[in-house]
Amino acid sequence: MLELSNISKSYQVGPTRLDILKGAHLSVAKGDLLAIMGKSGSGKSTIMNIIGLLDRPDSGSYHLNQRAIEQYQDDELSAARNELIGFVFQSFYLLPRQSALENVMLPLRYRDSPPAESKERAMMMLEKVGMASRAHHRPNELSGGQRQRVAIARALVGNPSLILADEPTGALDPRVGKDIMNLFIDLNEREGMTIVIITHDPSIAERCQRTVIMADGYLEEA
């Protein structure tokens, strides 16, 4: 489903060059539930952003659904993010002025689907994550765990091939984090959804089929 080879990425900070990724390889098959672990600052989010088409590598090749991403124009990247990828972030990234339902509808808005249909589909997703009763609440009226559920519904609404979750439980109580993790496992097992989760928590990594470790600019199978 996705194939990264020899990916490198460096940042120029003042006079020094930080080589974050030095030729990382990664392949993820359809239906995988993969955990990426590694020390803080090791480059986990960096590679996640590359996988998620939010950032481009300095060199290396990336195939997503057998298609080379390198030549994609900005608009094509936007369309691919919209159709193929669902993001879940550590700090939720919900729009504060919009209701849970409107937040979930947002990805559909960027593919011009009719509002009534979008609403129906968004409602279905909220139901799936157990948030239907809070559809008209704003993010600031919800708990952290509830916000993350809304964010997951938003990631699912566009029927993506791939869910990317960057420390999705990092800002939550361990108990609530476990519930969220159950949700991911459920999605993977019951619907065969491909999911990549970045985490610090070994107990979460344990529950994934596969774990890779980011260290010194490379990814290694655990």
Binding site: D74, N82, L106
Partner: peptide
């Protein structure tokens, strides 16, 4: 941040 979120969800320029 709102712009970033929208872009991540598929908004074009």
């Amino acid at each position: 941040q709102e712009i970033g979120i929208r872009r991540a969800l598929g908004a074009k320029r």
